[in-house]
Computed example of a mutant assay.
Amino acid sequence: MKSQIAFFMGEIDCRNHILKHGSSRRTIVQNAKKVATRYVRAVDELSRPRKPVKLAVVALPPATEAQHGNEHQPSVGTHAQRTVAVAAFNAGLRAAAKSCGMQVFEAIASLGDEQGRPLGAYFADGVHADPRCLPVVVQELRQKGWLDMHGHDLAVAQALACIAPPTRHSLPCGLGDLRTARLVLAERAALRCRAAGAKTAAVYGAGRHTHDLGLACFTRAGLRVVALLDDSPAVDTLHGVRVMRPDAVRTRFDAVIISSDGHESTLLQSAKRRFGSSKLIMPIYTQPE
């Protein structure tokens, strides 16, 4: 199996050094792309003598709006100039990475507003991405084949299990779409179950929500759905899994995931009454107790 290495170049280097060597838009863009190209080539040359390795570079996050007075790494230029530098660097990064067969991770780079400022929901200090970015970052890592949630990456799941999603900002990376956001939150619930040691689950709620959501968001996280529970089943099976009343289920499972956007609190209380502490009970939209 190939080793996997992702390289980060700090936003601080871009905001400080690149702008020292150019003030016009043209020179900023030229300098940023030149640095990005040299950076990727250096990464490529560094890896060649070693055993087969899977490489990626991480695109720079949005430029900070703060004027840092650090004597060693101060902010240089205006925020608009720094935004131009970051955009040019990332464009150069993509082009150079493509020519070398590297992947580019874009999740953190997408966490800015229309003016290129870091979204406060993800950058508590206006500079550094904080743990609230993890659901988006992990999704990209998994989609690009860098995480196998069926294997040994439960440390990621444990990290996800400790954080709350942003609530007052639209989700980045196209996750503003309601269905996509639901899938991410459902997968997070499954990751929390896996982090707690669960391997099998019953999904409580076999109505429209589960029909539209599907079960792949749970199985991708390494959780096997063995039953669908519903107080008033309208169908015998859904997504290839048997639907039954909670009091009739005989299949063994480790966790219960509540699948409803309109009645989550009601089903959550019902699950607690029925299963007590014998099962891990996990909501999708609210924080578990």
Rank of each mutant, 00 (worst) to 15 (best):
T251G: 02
A234V: 13
G112M: 00
G207R: 04
S110A: 14
T219I: 11
G116E: 06
V226L: 02
R82Q: 03
S110R: 01
L229F: 05
V43R: 03
I18P: 06
A85I: 01
D212F: 13
G214A: 12
H239N: 05
C100W: 04
R94K: 12
R15T: 13
T167G: 05
D231F: 01
H68A: 11
R192Y: 12
K33V: 15
M282D: 03
G77K: 02
L19D: 01
T219P: 02
E289D: 15
D44Q: 03
F123K: 02
P135N: 08
S232L: 10
G69P: 00
E106F: 08
P165A: 10
N16A: 14
E114H: 10
V84S: 01
L268C: 03
H17D: 13
R250Q: 13
G276Q: 10
G207I: 08
A234F: 03
T78R: 00
A164M: 02
R82C: 09
A59F: 10
R208D: 15
M1W: 10
L268M: 08
G197D: 07
R41F: 11
P62Y: 06
L55I: 13
A206Q: 03
G197S: 06
S260C: 08
V184R: 06
E65N: 10
E45N: 12
A91I: 06
Q4L: 10
A87C: 05
L238M: 09
G126M: 06
R242W: 03
K272C: 07
E71A: 14
R142E: 14
Q73R: 14
A189L: 00
D113K: 00
V226F: 00
L191Q: 12
P172Q: 01
E187S: 15
R220M: 04
Q67H: 14
S278Q: 11
H169E: 09
N16C: 15
A6D: 05
P135G: 03
G92V: 00
V53A: 07
H152Q: 14
Q73E: 14
R273S: 14
Y122W: 14
P52N: 09
N70C: 12
G77H: 05
F275W: 13
M149I: 04
A206V: 06
A216Y: 06
F253K: 00
L119N: 09
L111D: 02
A181P: 05
F7L: 08
M1R: 12
D236F: 03
A255Y: 01
A195G: 09
P49E: 03
L267I: 08
A107W: 05
D261G: 12
A121L: 04
R94G: 09
S170K: 04
H150D: 13
H17R: 15
K54P: 05
V86T: 09
S3T: 15
S260Y: 04
K54C: 11
L280V: 03
E289G: 13
V137R: 01
L46Q: 09
R168W: 07
L19K: 07
V40A: 01
V86K: 00
A6W: 10
C100A: 06
H211E: 15
L19E: 04
F123G: 09
T167K: 06
R194W: 02
A155F: 10
A190V: 07
A36V: 02
V156W: 10
T237H: 11
S278G: 11
C173T: 08
P74I: 15
A157P: 01
G120Y: 08
I163V: 13
C193Q: 07
Q67F: 13
R220Q: 12
R242T: 14
G120D: 11
A159T: 11
I257K: 07
M149R: 09
V226R: 00
S265D: 13
